[in-house]
């Protein structure tokens, strides 16, 4: 079978010839498509640094085989902001100093976007903390992360209400 996959990456459809069936989505993005915003921290689904959205759901890109994701819609941190206008989660991360070294940050942000989309946590700090626990931050920016997610969730809910009105 041909090792070709069609993916929509950050809203752009692309057909990618895979040189190897072993390539994960993470290594496809980082090593072949120059989308290095997504980070590799453990490569085993244990740290969350590689979190991306696949078909709107947050997953660990390191444990996803690219060949198996033919047809998938992928959103990475590079595709999050609308031009120079930051996504509310990105803006909130800056405002709340929700990172230090920044390495886990793209994964945290994509995870937060996924979390808000899931609609299970709302702005309950304990549910946000639990929901963000798949993203390790060794610098220890958790307080800012939780505050940023809550603020972004509220801002997005507000925007959604305004748009509905």
């Amino acid at each position: 079978m041909s090792l070709s996959v069609t993916l929509t990456i950050n809203r752009v459809p692309r057909t990618v010839q895979l040189d190897d069936p072993r390539v994960t989505l993470l290594d496809l993005l980082r090593e072949r498509l120059d989308l290095t915003g997504t980070k590799k921290g453990c490569d085993r689904g244990q740290c969350g640094a590689c979190t991306i959205l696949v078909d709107g759901r947050r997953v660990n890109a390191c444990l996803a085989l690219a060949i198996s994701h033919d047809g998938a819609d992928i959103l990475t941190v590079e595709g999050l902001s609308d031009g120079e206008r930051l996504h509310p989660v990105q803006a909130a991360f800056i405002a709340h100093d929700a990172f230090q070294c920044g390495f886990c940050t793209p994964g945290q942000i994509m995870s937060a976007v996924g979390l808000i989309g899931e609609g299970q946590a709302g702005d309950d700090p304990e549910r946000v903390r639990e929901g963000m626990s798949g993203n390790l931050c060794r610098c220890g920016a958790y307080r800012g992360i939780t505050e940023a997610v809550i603020e972004a969730a509220r801002a997005m809910a507000e925007t959604a209400r305004e748009e509905a009105a």
Binding site: G45, T51, V59, N60, L63
Partner: peptide, 9 residues
């Protein structure tokens, strides 16, 4: 179990 990311997959 696991994390939200893993449960999603």
């Amino acid at each position: 179990g696991a994390s939200a990311q893993l449960r999603n997959a």
